[in-house]
């Protein structure tokens, strides 16, 4: 397998929340969420860390797809999810503390899209 600094696990939108809950129960901490805009799609990477291990959930979605927020599992994800929403325009549902695109308060709309 190609080494990308951790184990890449392909994911679907429906699987995201159950698999995230399983990770938390297993004692992993949330490290980061990253989005990349590629050919009209978003590629989301949710990474989890446990000791020195690193697992990455890879989710490829269209611009119109709606992703559930994981703040109900890891409450600390609210900052990253607000960032993805404001800078990329990823549609994320039910974020714990939703800044409603007012986190960075930039003039330009979704500059990373």
């Amino acid at each position: 397998m190609e080494n990308i600094g951790g184990n890449k696990i392909e994911m679907t939108i429906a699987d995201l929340l159950p698999k995230t809950i399983a990770k938390k129960e297993d004692g992993w901490r949330l490290s980061q969420i990253c989005s990349t805009s590629l050919d009209g799609k978003y590629e989301l990477s949710y990474s989890f860390a446990k000791d020195m291990e690193y697992d990455i959930f890879r989710l490829v979605i269209d611009h119109d797809d709606v992703v559930p927020s994981i703040t109900s599992v890891y409450s600390a994800a609210f900052l990253i999810e607000n960032e993805l929403k404001e800078l990329f325009g990823v549609k994320i549902e039910r974020i714990g503390i939703d800044f409603d695109n007012k986190l960075y308060r930039i003039n330009e709309e979704t500059p990373f899209k």
């Binding site: 190609e2 080494n3 990308i4 600094g5 951790g6 490290s31 980061q32 990253c34 990477s45 990474s47 860390a49 690193y54 990455i56």
Partner: peptide
């Protein structure tokens, strides 16, 4: 290709993707 690099900064773990 892609890579997630993690280093320990004075303030803690930084992830470079």
């Amino acid at each position: 290709g892609e890579y997630f690099m993690r280093v320990e900064q004075p303030r803690g773990e930084a992830v470079f993707y």
